[in-house]
């Protein structure tokens, strides 16, 4: 004989199941779950106007090119107590730096921290060349980062999110999905769900990292991905993290995972 299930028990069972269901669906996205499918990835160029496309395509007058020239010069310049240039150890970028930009940010074996390409270049300069520090977003660092990134031009992005990088990837993913700032917006709301739609006169892009460092017309100079991400925080009226913040690197890693397969595209021009 079945015991009668009281209304209370029924309620408990119902809400217990509902709670379990919420847990399942509210769980963080599995690493394999992509909100933009790999074959739907698009560079920022797909969302810009004709002037920017012309500027970027101009292989003489692209405003990022003087910085490329500078990067090429710095590569050969002897620096610091080591009396070595980058070239002394690394030879030509076309060989030694090929593919490097496709896999950064990456874990630095010595410190266990997540390094973006700028961090790696700065460290190499200080530790190996024993030269003066290049501050973040300085002309020299930007030029060098651009020059090193250009060795990976046209190559597909493939950053690792395994091992020590996994926690950084998950942290970055969480930030991307979380509402922030006075405008209470999450990156995903515009860049996953509404790309292609116009915000005033601009088309929202997918927010891809493949074209950085980019010459941003708004700032009239080359800019790093970190600077661009900090400006995203300004855009949603959130408190902007300090330069060098872990969050920026975590987000960069998540963006690179999200952009897997998209080609590196520098020197680029963006609004």
């Amino acid at each position: 004989m079945l015991l009668p299930i009281t209304a209370l028990k029924r309620c408990c069972v119902f809400w217990g199941l509902a709670w379990l269901g919420m847990l399942v669906f509210a769980a963080p996205l599995h690493a394999q779950q992509r909100l933009i499918a790999l074959d739907k990835l698009q560079s920022g160029l797909a969302f810009t106007g004709p002037e920017i496309l012309d500027l970027q395509a101009d292989d003489f007058a692209n405003p990022a090119l003087p910085a490329m020239d500078k990067g090429a010069k710095l590569w050969k310049q002897v620096a610091g107590k080591s009396d070595k240039s980058c070239q002394s150890c690394h030879g030509e970028t076309s060989a030694s730096m090929k593919g490097v930009a496709t896999r950064y940010p990456a874990i630095d074996k010595a410190s266990g921290q997540l390094f973006n390409l700028e961090d790696r270049i700065r460290q190499c300069r200080q530790k190996n060349q024993k030269a003066s520090e290049w501050p973040l977003e300085s002309d020299e660092l930007l030029a060098m980062t651009l020059f090193v990134t250009s060795a990976s031009n046209g190559m597909p992005i493939k950053a690792s999110v395994e091992g020590k990088a996994q926690s950084h990837f998950e942290a970055g993913q969480k930030i991307f999905m979380t509402r922030q700032g006075q405008m209470n917006l999450a990156c995903t709301q515009c860049h996953d769900q509404r790309y292609g739609i116009k915000l005033f006169t601009d088309k929202l892009s997918q927010g891809q990292p493949n074209a950085y460092p980019a010459y941003r017309i708004e700032w009239q100079r080359l800019a790093s991905l970190e600077r661009r991400l900090r400006f995203c925080y300004t855009g949603v009226k959130a408190e902007v993290p300090a330069w060098g913040h872990k969050d920026m690197r975590d987000i960069s890693l998540y963006l690179m995972w999200r952009a897997q397969g998209l080609s590196i595209e520098v020197p680029s021009v963006r609004k």
């Binding site: 003489f60 007058a61 405003p63 090119l65 003087p66 910085a67 500078k70 009239q220 100079r221």
Partner: peptide, 8 residues
């Protein structure tokens, strides 16, 4: 065509 690097 002349492109000069200068912050202006």
């Amino acid at each position: 065509r002349l492109l000069v690097q200068h912050p202006m």
